[in-house]
Design a protein around this nucleic acid. Structure first.
Lengths: 240, 240
DNA sequence: ACCTGAACACCGTTCAAGT
DNA sequence: ACCTGAACACCGTTCAAGT
């Protein structure tokens, strides 16, 4: 009565398992979360959506990550993986001026985070402690130590530099993620803001009204470099 | 058969309206949201909870605020209201050194945001454009202009200064809000982080291992002042 | 050990209906 | 004009049950 027969082998494509889905793993979960982040932003990275993309339910993820916060931390460290090589290369290049070395590492970090929507929201938590985050920190510490700065200035300097890069990306991410999709939407918004500021009563907001153009000048890259130069100047004052 | 009688006046406490609940208004909604923020943090400020605290349903709020984002913006401006007086006083005090004036305004902003949990998350969006935010910005612009800095440096300087203050508060808010409630919880966490960093392989993380103590040195106030001094030094280089 | 369905206790926003 | 109940389409996390 049973249809099971042992005299002929089962066809090789009949594995007896579920379709093609690869088994769940932390790497697969992080990869799916990163895809979701890139496609739709950090708010779209929910346990439910990640699970769905992996063909399972949200409860299944909890065997591989403690909770959503931990998952996002892992995604952030994955992103910082894109910075490690360049950071370590620059830290090892002893011929490079320390200012240029810092500029290169900060720019590389900034670009990496910018490539991944509003992931910077997850980095606003002090120095990242994942394996890749630690390697980037180590590179910073090496560069500033090599410059001849005292340990205390180096330690605090890296803290403030990381904070600055993250804050800059985060501020920019807001405009990229929310409100408007394309560049002309953004321009229209800023024109509106400028017009509004110019329309303020000049007796109560004299400086604001006068400086609207100066405030609107420069793209986000210029502002970033300007702030970075301020920090570098501040650091340089502590050279012996 | 009806119990309505017109020959005797209704008792004065019988208004014919619902109990005592004050009518809904934007101010009442913002006040309720602020109470919720202070009591339980920004994540607790949901349209549903705010409505509940006002004795109504979430849908009723949409007659007075466009959406949750707008409500949070209004709450932020309410908080910045705590900064306006001091900022304008300092900006008007012509005898004050511009560095000290900037220090005072940034410290006042920082303290105000620190008093309200993780409200800084809402400020990470460029210069706030609410009435109180604009008055604080105007004060900054006045102080830096009075210092003799060129317009472009002033405009970008205020942008970077605001960003710095917000980022610093936001970083600190993470540790205050998440993970642990009291000071000894925080100390235990940092001890753990320090121990972990010290345990890293010294050949791959020589600077990290060596500088653990320097990285742990100083409370958040000292770090803030250190970073602020770096920015002020960076600004001062642009004085004629 | 890993995975699952179902449930719990939540979200922001819309909309037709009421006053 | 303002307010409401109900609904829609979501959340993170837990837990008993399965393999």
């Amino acid at each position: 009565m049973t249809r099971r027969t042992t005299d002929i082998p089962a066809p090789p494509w009949r594995t007896g398992k579920r379709p093609v889905r690869q088994p769940l793993s932390q790497d697969a979960i992080v990869a799916a979360a990163l895809r979701l982040l890139d496609a739709e932003g950090l708010d779209a990275v929910s346990m439910r959506r990640v699970a769905q993309d992996l063909g399972t339910g949200p409860a299944s993820l909890y065997a591989h990550v403690a909770n959503k916060d931990e998952l996002i931390e892992l995604v952030l460290d994955e992103v910082l993986g894109e910075v490690v090589d360049e950071a370590e290369r620059v830290a090892a290049a002893s011929d490079l001026d320390w200012r240029d070395a810092v500029r290169t590492v900060t720019r590389t970090s900034r670009r990496a985070m910018q490539r991944h929507r509003d992931i910077a929201r997850a980095a606003m938590v002090g120095v990242p402690l994942g394996p890749n985050g630690l390697r980037v920190s180590e590179a910073y510490l090496g560069i500033l130590t090599g410059a001849g700065l005292p340990d205390q200035i180096v330690a605090w300097g890296v803290d403030r530099l990381s904070l600055y890069v993250t804050a800059d990306v985060l501020e920019g991410a807001f405009y990229r993620n929310r409100g408007f999709r394309n560049e002309s939407d953004a321009r229209r918004y800023w024109t509106q803001v400028g017009d509004y500021l110019r329309s303020l009563p000049p007796d109560r907001f004299p400086h604001t009204v006068r400086m609207v153009d100066a405030m609107m000048t420069g793209d986000s890259d210029e502002r970033f470099e300007h702030g970075l130069d301020m920090i570098l100047d501040g650091l340089a004052r502590h050279l012996p």
